[in-house]
């Protein structure tokens, strides 16, 4: 009889604490779902508002023509779209390999003081206000190397902004690759270099792509450093050594203007910029989604 009392007592106690735990669980779940909903809602609202304000600006001319002075009807942001694409392409070409290389170095080779110094520098650049990057490129490249405002200088500024983002995400993603996989490859008589290229990088591929896409998106939206380097341009320009238009600059110019029509065009250009970055992200993911490790 005594034993059964003990059991029922214990059970009773478990019962209340179980109820309590379930309640806490439920509250926690609700809180998490709620914050997710709020986050998504804010983003959706933002997107909805940009579409609402920007859509009236969109027509064929907006994508194919150059901006016209105020008063002339029509005109578009085509030079800015092309300028952004050109500068992003060059920035990606410069920034992604350097960023990936830095991340790979830090994880696979770097140790000791030198690696710490590099990690510190990368963090420093990441924390630099983008306008400072613009000033730096302006004083060095624009004034002393090229001699004038140029798309190339803009691309260099964007590359400098991309490097730390790519490097730090790459470092984190590569650290997630278990050492057992590196050892498995090395134990098969595969060299360090090939182990990194064919085992470590493909295993971390999704994360590496995410870092690259983030860096591209961040660079694509930068305005301040471009004002000091690429300057902007009302005309079509395919010469990277000349001033070049870019969507953020165009948005800025339209937005600070006094005319209602320009404001609408600023919203329209914002919408286009979102579209360009979304397309680039999707293309990057698509292009890298297939296995890079196929039977030859």
């Amino acid at each position: 009889m005594e034993a059964s009392t003990v059991i029922s007592l214990t059970l009773g106690k478990t019962d209340t604490s179980l109820k309590r735990r379930k309640l806490v669980d439920q509250i926690f779940t609700i809180l998490v779902v709620l914050s997710a909903l709020i986050g998504v809602a804010i983003l959706a609202l933002l997107l909805f508002y940009i579409i609402l304000r920007g859509a009236p600006a969109l027509n064929v001319a907006f994508f194919t023509e150059r901006p016209l002075p105020y008063g002339e009807p029509g005109g578009g942001v085509a030079p800015a779209i092309l300028g952004t694409l050109q500068m992003l392409a060059v920035a990606a070409l410069l920034g992604i390999p350097i960023g990936l290389g830095t991340g790979i170095y830090l994880v696979e080779f770097g140790h000791g003081r030198f690696a710490e110094a590099i990690r510190f520098t990368v963090d420093l650049i990441a924390g630099l206000p983008s306008i400072s990057v613009g000033v730096f490129v302006w004083s060095l490249i624009v004034r002393h190397v090229i001699g004038n405002f140029a798309g190339l200088a803009g691309a260099i500024a964007l590359a400098i902004i991309m490097v730390p983002i790519v490097a730090r995400t790459a470092e984190e993603m590569l650290r997630l690759v278990p050492d057992t996989l590196r050892e498995a490859s090395l134990a098969l008589g595969v060299s360090r270099r090939r182990t990194i290229l064919n085992v470590v990088l493909p295993t971390a591929r999704t994360g590496l792509v995410t870092g690259t896409v983030l860096a591209l998106a961040r660079a694509g939206g930068e305005t301040a450093p471009l004002l000091l380097t690429a300057l902007g341009n009302q005309f079509f320009n395919f010469d990277l050594l000349q001033p070049m238009a870019a969507l953020p600059i165009q948005i800025y110019n339209y937005a600070v203007g006094p005319y209602e029509d320009w404001h609408t065009k600023a919203w329209g250009a914002s919408l286009v910029l979102i579209g360009v970055i979304a397309t680039l992200s999707l293309l990057t993911r698509w292009a890298t989604s297939r296995s890079s490790f196929k039977a030859r």
Binding site: L181, E183, V190, S291
Partner: peptide, 25 residues
């Protein structure tokens, strides 16, 4: 060659590619 305590096939590779990994790499 070496076989480890915890099975460690390359997760991004098929069974086929795992077998020839050492040769292909």
């Amino acid at each position: 060659g070496m076989v480890f305590q915890k099975p460690n096939p390359f997760p991004m590779m098929s069974v086929y590619d795992n077998v020839i990994a050492g040769l292909k790499l």
